[in-house]
Amino acid sequence: MSARAPVRALLVVLGIVILGVFPLVFSNPTTTSIAFFTVVFMVCASAWNMFAGSSGYIALGHAVYFGCGAYALTLLANHLGFAAGWGVFALVPVAGIVAGLIAIPTGLIALRARRHTFVVITIAFMFIFQLAAFNLGFTGGSSGLQPPTPLWSVKTYNDNFYYVIALVLLATVALSWLVRRSRFGLQLLAIRDDEERARGLGVRVGRVKLTAFILSAIPVGMAGGVYAYFLGQIFPQFAFDPLFDLSIALMAFLGGLGTVAGPLLGALVLESLQQYFTVQYGASQAYLIIYGALFLVVVLLLPRGVIPSVEELISRWRSRSGAPEPEPGETGRTGGGVVEAGAR
């Protein structure tokens, strides 16, 4: 572990530097727009994984929080009379809070069920919210809503939005890392492994699951808010999109469910690829074929996702080239031997 730490620190620094300088190096607006969408999905996949990857509850309704964040920012900006510009970004945390608040009742209901039933309930919530957005008056129905549009040049426009969502990403990854390393994260892992056993150890499973669920909804809501502001319009079918739910789950699966870096890698690969295909070949949804093929490859060759599989390969390679591994029986004997010495 100690040998890996400097490598990890280096990778983190490298990642932050690349995130920071990307629009300076690749300043083409098409590229920066692809980068913006990619980072939006990195935020969402990372936040989703913080709950689903750690607890094993595969939620397929996080579009609810993405959409609520999008509508919250748009409605608040319009009704509170925010002028287009930097000021609207102050509403991004509010969009996150709204998403978090909505996650309380929806989470309370969905988390009463386990596994498959839970998945179905989260999907149902997503369609209920989409239906509500189509039919409620204040959401503008099927014609949607338009937040104020800043009058920045194309380059400034993309860069500003990119850096805002990059900040949200840094905060989300930091939170995800903290959760993974905390007592709270340990309890989530225990729930994923065996919920009854965790309950038997005294873990307040209901409270832990709900807290993680709410925590994961907040960054998704913030991303939804930035996304709506960037597009300058928001419609029910795009705010509450079943494909969004599948995409972020698949991104986490591709990179490595339950790891901090996995969902980031998954989103980086899949979203940039999808955006690139859309730009190259139009919005034909041909990317879905690529998605499907890629997942077949991953499921067949790297079922645990890219990062855990690569880590395993590296450690296997290391143990082969470095010190010989202890004999299988050796550790048991050592344990027993010292026990006897201690007991004397």
């Binding site: 007592r183 340990l186 309890q187 892992l189 225990a190 994923r192 492994d193 065996d194 056993r197 965790a198 038997g200 150890l201 005294g202 873990v203």
Partner: peptide
């Protein structure tokens, strides 16, 4: 210490031991 198989199989040995003190801040 409950009857056999009370460890979390998918968690590491260290994580399992740390679960014993998850209430300690």
């Amino acid at each position: 210490v409950p009857q056999a198989h009370s460890l979390f199989a998918e968690m590491t040995v260290r994580e399992n031991v740390e679960m014993g003190a998850y209430t300690v801040r």
